[in-house]
Amino acid sequence: MVRGLYRARISFKVADSLAHSAPVADGSADPSRRDFIHIAAAAATLGGVAAVAWPLIDELNPAADTLALASLEYDVSKVALGQQVTISWRKQPVFIRHRTPAEIAKAKADDHVTADMKDPEPDANRVKAGHEEWLIVLASCTHLGCVPVFAQGDYGGWLCPCHGSQYDTSARIRKGPAPKNLEVPEYAFLSDTKVKIG
């Protein structure tokens, strides 16, 4: 605060000297001392309002206990070939899809059709090497957050029931209003069947 006032005073002096094009002496009868008090008071009020407003806004952000919902382990062997499960991680739905060889081949073949892709990305970047059969993505449509429906739409991936976005078997956006591919969360395989998300 003290430094703030000091700065306000300096900047005031600069402004004042610009206005009068004469250096300001430290004279006690100087009316600029009153101006200084006005500016300092206004600055302090503004600072005070900002200092109170910020906690009131930041309080709306996710609380510490919400943020602490960290990681989750899941045994993917429970998911049958050609099927998917939807699990809840940090209160968000996550798809774990056990892709068939045909689906993987289709996803890889489509790496090259970038024409109708809004967010081109090769399939290899969206899975872990050696674990191509497992596709793990956030189940939140990148349009407005609905959970897309499994194995529907023209691309064999997902179809969003809300506004008709279509995803392929690599969960890339192919059609509809969604701007991005389904997001791949941070995860790692701890063993061949155990995966740790987050």
Partner: peptide, 12 residues
């Protein structure tokens, strides 16, 4: 995140 108070719509 500010509107939701979390990663998604939830109790907050």
């Amino acid at each position: 995140a500010l509107l939701w108070g979390g990663f998604s719509v939830d109790e907050p």
